[in-house]
Design a protein around this nucleic acid. Sequence first.
DNA 1: AAATTATAATTAACGATGTTAAGTATGGGC
DNA 2: GCCCATACTTAACATCGTTAATTATAATTT
Lengths: 202, 202
Amino acid sequence: MGFKERRQKHKDEFKAEILEAALTLFAQEGYANFSMRKLAARIDYSPTTIYNYFRDKDDLLFHICENHYAHLMEEIREIRKRGISPEETLREAMLGYIRYSLAHPEQYKVVFFSNPQLYGRPEEFKNRDTMSLRLWRNTCEVIDECMRSGVFRPMDGETLSIVFWSAVHGLVSSFIFTKDFPMPDPDVMAKMLLDGLFKGYK
Amino acid sequence: MGFKERRQKHKDEFKAEILEAALTLFAQEGYANFSMRKLAARIDYSPTTIYNYFRDKDDLLFHICENHYAHLMEEIREIRKRGISPEETLREAMLGYIRYSLAHPEQYKVVFFSNPQLYGRPEEFKNRDTMSLRLWRNTCEVIDECMRSGVFRPMDGETLSIVFWSAVHGLVSSFIFTKDFPMPDPDVMAKMLLDGLFKGYK
DNA sequence: AAATTATAATTAACGATGTTAAGTATGGGC
DNA sequence: GCCCATACTTAACATCGTTAATTATAATTT
């Protein structure tokens, strides 16, 4: 391995290190208290150094999102390998989404509160290999399997997927963003939502 | 009317004027580009003047939220007076919520992206007469009427209300916050969501 | 009418923020 | 030992929310 490769490798490692530090900074200080300068202080470099590894703050946030989606992907991939019924698979996938997101609220905020065009324009989204797209495809596949096996009546799968996802997203974001309203138990609410949706589209 | 009342009235009017200016600033420049200083420039006063009428930025945002909820309240109140069935009432109320929120996305962002404790702590929320609480009570009442008239099977009304609301909130926030994903038609999606929920809890 | 006082507005400043431009150190290739 | 690319730092700019000190204005009292 030559100098160039070695240096590139070092650069990649450092980039990953910055990301790691950003994740813990998010987890510890929260989205509102995250800043480039604080991150720089954490890794003991000047703020501008980060800009050698990430184009700007949005670029950094994009990678944080991808990291979040990667975890959700791992979750759904593992569930799909279990060989359980499509209905159970979808249910577990949605519960997994809820559980992981509620366990990492500050990362979830990044996904939904930073630049709404973090992944570019809509038409570009599906031509780009991202964790977000992979997760989306997986979700659609599971919903399709549900429809093919009669768990759901025939309808537009893509739209149904969005309906499912957005309902779950609504639940998660309610818990994460609303701290001035007495919310019920998340598990109780998740069960009620999913029961309703499954029955509703049967 | 004495001097004190007249001055108080003037103060109230000015406060309302600031709020008005804030609303149009939000609508025109968006949540991200809203700032106290820009608002001050709009009303041709120094930034610090605003602090004579609002405690801080959060206080101002609180009133923006209340304004938003007031409109939604007006909407649901009007619908309930129509004398249509509970099911139709709930359906129209949810569609009204969606329509108004999508028509005022930047105001909606305020409601869900500013300080999560804008309305204080959860236990205080229900002891404070706010537009938000009134809207919530109205929603619960409509859902209760649905349950009593057999539109929904018996279950915990409060939880069902939150489930309904959060699902609709998920739909709205998806459209407002996600600009990098190809979304379907809002009306189609709204219909599918509500159809599913109504059937799901029958 | 003049002096006093309360109120409303302003200017100046502090500590943050993201980001760019200019300058400095470091270490391999000739 | 010199050159140059790369990595990093310092300094700076324009913004932000907010506080303290200050001035202008209008009302009240003498």
